[in-house]
Design a protein around this nucleic acid. Structure first.
Length: 781
RNA sequence: GCUCGAAUGGUGGAACCGGUAGACACGAGGGACUUAAAAUCCCUUUGCCGCAAGGCAGUGCGAGUUCGAGUCUCGCUUCGAGCACCA
């Protein structure tokens, strides 16, 4: 063996071989249960959570890897701080995405998903995450979705789940309804198909009731500001007033005058009202339309119903029709005509507005189109406007439509009975299993494929025992993911969704990391469900994630990665070539974690070089004699810098600090001392855990490096004895002086003008001298 | 239109509270080692002028505050993200 290496020459007997080191430690971690915390007895529990992935057939994406690694580093860092860290990971495997893919490749999702999960698991394990694999889950496990159905029932019990026929977003491609949050610019978020409006009976969660709380709590959450801003935007609070406009004539056959209530944010402009507009669907339209206008009104309402949402939103030309009726402005007593138009939305406010064309752009356009009068008010008129309204607050947040006319999801646990009406499935009869049907392809009927299976949906009413009918819609995937963080610590407990003692110990989640694309979907829904469970007495906190950080996106060659551009990075290739430790560290080094960055193939070599140097420095270090005092000083500075930066997820600068230290340690090809290099192994450990374990072991430690304690620094070492002070004359850099650290202004000044290059700019007595100790001397002449 | 971000060498990116702009890394150039290459190690690397010492300019653009501005204020430009006929 030795002879062979002698012949090959280039092969060092003990050079760094990532794949060897990594597979060794992967196995040891599993054997020793290194990553399994004591769920019931942990003294310093720390829950480090990462948004779970959808297990796609393509396998893990670098974006996922980037995010998981960032979370893993945080988790490992917290562990080195002495915390009992729980880092779980599972799969968000229900939903349209999985189902569409299964349809495309002609497989059943129930067969496809386990394959995808196995591939994900393989890739995730290669990444060296500190994940507790004994507590994983998939939302498609009956053991899991049983409790998703339980969550539905809690909302139902608390009066927050209701069924309503109404205008909903229908995706003609995915053949299902969508939540408002899943519609982007009138297009389906998943497939980009134009969304149509349909009138269907659907299950809703009354999230709108929680709008004030969802908004107010944001102020006390330690979350990325961008995420909070997106939620505030989405919840959309606006302060205004509701004002009643009485009709000028009575509705036929009624004794009293009816009135129309409007919402406005500008009650001070009431003197400028020249007409009113109702949404076409407004319930009063039928009764107030006059005989002459009836036909025109009906036609317009039919047109509005047909018009797809995108036409309404993109083509903002104003259309409308006069109802023939008039109302009385409560502030002036004047009669104003009542129109209907689809620029007024039934879902917002009261579905009716007072139009002030002189002070509202949209009203102005409408008035111009139809030749209605435009009144521009003076400031005095607005200030002296009579108060005829009641102050109200409106939110844009709509209720969450959770029914999906699809197959691949948890069936909604409701049974319809002719006598008893909708009856919730008793909790002890959960789960309502999703039947293994083959014809799961959705159709245009507006009902789920499950509705084709009488043998499944015909079932006795839990109340009276007569023949009933199951709800055939399944619930939205976002319900699966709105509570999964509650389940992880209690995985394996089969008589309740989450154990109260365990939940008390581990939740809320200490840090949550994920993509900002979920700011108004998953993150809002999770907060809502948490509040509901708190109000139902199931948990003791009403915010699920104490701290949330949105990670950035990885791009390549300045563009988003996509298959069509051919610039997708497959993590496997890079791990094969460079090792997981180098790959992880490179991902964290390429840019700020919360911003992301550009993935460049060549960049990874620098990180690998760093690990190679670390390897050889540790293996060749001196164990006798004393370490260099200057190096030790730099070490303390590095411990502080790398520690502070790692703690605040500023991973790229933490790595830079370690590299800088490495350069100091090896300066001029010197041999490092064990005391100089050992703490660096610990600093590197969260980033490159395998090599850190290996080196830690080779340094004579028998325990995992992750059971060691983060090195401490001596604050006295942070300041240098002598410092370089910058000297400016009239604001321009003119030179530097080297002085002892505690030097005062006079002394610094004398030292400065003793330098000819500085003195030549200082002519005569200075007008002013500014001295920043240890940094700078500024002379004004 | 509204709400957030961002803009710094050839490239990715650093810069605490307003205090030496360009840390760290890639790339490039030069050198050492080698029969050679790879690997490794060392040096140089914002631009311009200069043999040098040194000087001038410089953080998207234009003003301002300040002894001093990448950083603060005002006014723009461009790019990215979210929301959008929400009264």
């Amino acid at each position: 063996m030795g002879e062979m290496q002698e012949i090959q020459g280039s092969v060092q007997p003990d050079s760094y071989n990532p794949s060897e080191v990594e597979s060794k430690w992967k196995n040891l971690w599993t054997e020793r249960h290194t990553n399994v915390p004591d769920i019931k007895g942990a003294k310093n529990p720390y829950y480090a959570l990462m948004m779970f992935p959808y297990p796609s057939a393509e396998g893990l994406h670098v974006g996922n890897m980037f995010a998981f690694t960032g979370n893993d580093i945080h988790a490992r860092y917290q562990r080195l701080q002495g915390k009992d860290v729980f880092e779980p990971l599972g799969y968000d495997a229900f939903g349209i995405h999985s189902e569409n893919y299964a349809l495309k490749v002609g497989m059943h999702p129930a067969d496809l998903i386990p394959k995808n999960i196995a591939n994900f698991r393989r890739q995730l394990e290669r990444a060296g995450l500190m994940v507790d694999w004994t507590r994983s889950l998939s939302t498609t496990d009956p053991d899991y979705y049983r409790w998703t159905q339980w969550v539905f029932l809690q909302l139902y019990k608390q009066g927050l789940a209701y069924k309503k026929k109404g205008a909903v977003n229908w995706c003609p491609f995915d053949k299902t309804v969508l939540a408002n949050e899943q519609v982007e610019n009138g297009l389906c978020e998943r497939c980009g198909t134009k969304v149509e409006q349909r009138f269907l009976e659907q299950w809703f969660f009354e999230i709108s009731k929680y709008a004030p709380r969802l908004l107010e709590n944001l102020d006390r959450l330690d979350w990325s500001e961008t995420t909070k801003a997106a939620q505030r935007n989405w919840i959309g609070r606006s302060n205004g007033a509701e004002i009643d406009f009485r009709l000028a004539t009575k509705v036929d056959g009624e004794d009293d005058y009816r009135s129309i209530r409007v919402f406005t944010t500008r009650p001070d402009t009431i003197l400028g009202v020249t007409y009113m507009v109702l949404a076409p669907e407004h319930p009063l339209v039928d009764s107030i339309a006059t005989a002459e206008q009836r036909l025109a009104v009906d036609n317009y309402r039919e047109e509005a119903k047909k018009k797809d949402l995108i036409a309404r939103k993109v083509n903002k030309e104003k259309t409308g029709v006069f109802t023939g009726a008039y109302a009385i402005n409560p502030a002036t007593g004047k009669h104003v005509p009542i129109w209907i138009s689809d620029y007024v939305l039934m879902e917002y406010g009261t579905g009716a507005i007072m139009a002030v064309p002189g002070h509202d752009e949209r009203d102005g356009e409408f008035a111009e189109t139809f030749g209605l009068p435009i009144v521009v008010l003076t400031d005095e008129e607005m200030e002296s406007a009579p108060k005829v309204g009641v102050d109200v607050v409106n939110y844009r947040l709509h209720d969450w439509c959770i029914s999906r006319q699809r197959y691949w999801g948890p069936p909604i646990p409701i049974i319809y009975c002719d006598d008893c009406g909708p009856v919730p499935v008793p909790e002890n009869q959960l789960p309502v299993l999703l039947p293994p049907i083959d014809d799961f392809k959705p159709d245009d009927s507006g009902v789920s494929p499950l509705a084709r299976h009488e043998e499944w949906y015909i079932t006795p009413c839990p109340n009276c025992g007569k023949q009933g009918r199951r709800e055939t819609d399944v619930s939205d995937t976002f319900l699966d993911s709105a509570w999964y963080f509650l389940r992880y610590p209690s995985v394996g407990i089969d008589d309740k969704p989450f154990d109260p003692e365990i939940t008390k110990r581990w939740l809320p989640v200490d840090t949550y990391i994920g993509g900002n694309e979920h700011a108004v979907l998953h993150l809002l829904y999770s907060r809502f469900i948490t509040m509901v469970l708190k109000d139902g007495g199931h948990i003791e906190f009403d915010e699920p994630f104490t701290k949330f950080r949105a990670h950035g996106l990885i791009i390549r060659e300045g563009a988003k990665m996509s298959k069509s551009k051919g610039n997708v990075v497959n993590p496997d290739e890079y791990i094969d070539e460079w090792g997981a430790d180098s790959f992880r560290t490179y991902l964290m080094f390429l840019g700020p974690f919360e911003e992301g960055g550009d993935f460049r193939d060549q960049g990874i070599s620098g990180v690998r070089r760093f690990l190679d140097r670390l390897w050889s420095s540790v293996l060749n270090c001196e164990h006798t004699g004393e370490p260099d005092a200057d190096v030790i000083r730099k070490l303390h500075q590095t411990i502080k810098k790398a520690g502070d930066d790692t703690a605040k997820l500023s991973y790229n600068t933490a790595i830079a600090a370690m590299m800088e230290y490495m350069n100091v340690v090896r300066k001029g090809e010197r041999k490092s001392h064990a005391k100089e290099i050992a703490p660096l192994v610990q600093l590197v450990a969260p980033f490159a855990p395998h090599i850190a374990e290996e080196l830690w072991e080779r340094m004579g430690n028998s325990e995992s490096v992750f059971n060691s304690t983060w090195p401490t620094y001596d604050p006295a070492s942070l300041t240098e004895d002598s410092v370089e002070i910058a000297v400016q004359v009239n604001g321009k850099m003119r030179g530097k002086i080297s002085v002892s650290a505690g030097v005062q202004q006079d002394e610094a000044y004398s030292a400065a003008i003793a330098v000819p290059g500085i003195a030549k700019f200082v002519t005569g007595e200075p007008k002013k001298v500014v001295f920043v100790p240890g940094r700078l001397l500024s002379i004004v002449v």
